[in-house]
Amino acid sequence: MSGGSRTVRDRAPGDRALGDLVTGDGTAGGHAMVELRGVHKSFGPLHVLRGVDLTVEQGQVTVILGPSGSGKSTLLRTINHLEKVDRGSVRVGGRLLGYRQVGDRLHELSEREILRQRTQIGFVFQSFNLFPHLTVRQNLTEAPLSAQRRPRAEAEALAARLLERVGLADKADAYPRTLSGGQQQRVAIARALALEPALVLFDEPTSALDPELVGEVLEVMKDLARSGTTMIVVTHEIGFAREVADTVVFMDAGLVVESGPPAQVLDDPRHERTRAFIGKVL
């Protein structure tokens, strides 16, 4: 596997860590694909995100690790506005997500503008969430047709190419329920890619799969990483993180505890909490 040969971009030393509540200042510096600044999110009394900062460069693969309840999934969901943030800012491709800044005030974007932003961001769910009443091909063409208004022939050609890529060219006319879990998740990845997004988010993509089906999904994701797609992956697959990630981010209790290259975070963690977690899962 050549996935490990990708270079890790140099970043400023001193990782963004606990309690750094600096809010975003104007435009994103450099070519950060994703930039979160001081993101807070509560569900009722539950303070799930407590000021998260995160930067993901274009073309990078970022793996987010952490115990359940640490806010990983919620964080991911704020990056395509499935969850609104209470405080802080989320920028994708340098643009504020879900809001427009006028002076120093934020105005929520219209539904249509939010949907347009979402078409640039693919999302792969733990439970696939394929549309069961549509065939595999229809699952892949729905968003390009209705959200991007692409011509049908073009959408279908793209769907065929993507199914080829995830190794399911012969399943175009099948209904999702007739496929195995691994095949369904590969279809779901192809569906996310059908929007030709600049960024793909994965929320525990292999957690709902039988152990013997995990490999085929990870293979597709590795292939995607090799092609230079910007990816943020919440997972418990440490092996995947080690092999594919440019950056591993460890979260606990709604904060980024530490982040860095996999070799450093996985093998030589600086924080006690990271060490305890890695020790348990390895």
């Binding site: 395509n80 499935l82 539904e111 249509r112 949907l115 347009r116 932003q117 979402r118 078409t119 961001i121 999302f123 769910f125 439970s127 969430n129 394929l130 549309f131 729905e142 968003a143 209705s146 959200a147 991007q148 569906r191 996310a192 929007l195």
Partner: peptide
């Protein structure tokens, strides 16, 4: 999850209701 998937794909609201 069906609503979420449709929303995440950027499918317009009315279409989400009628098609999904």
């Amino acid at each position: 999850g069906q609503r979420e998937a449709a929303a995440a794909l950027g499918i317009p609201r009315a279409r989400r209701l009628l098609r999904i």
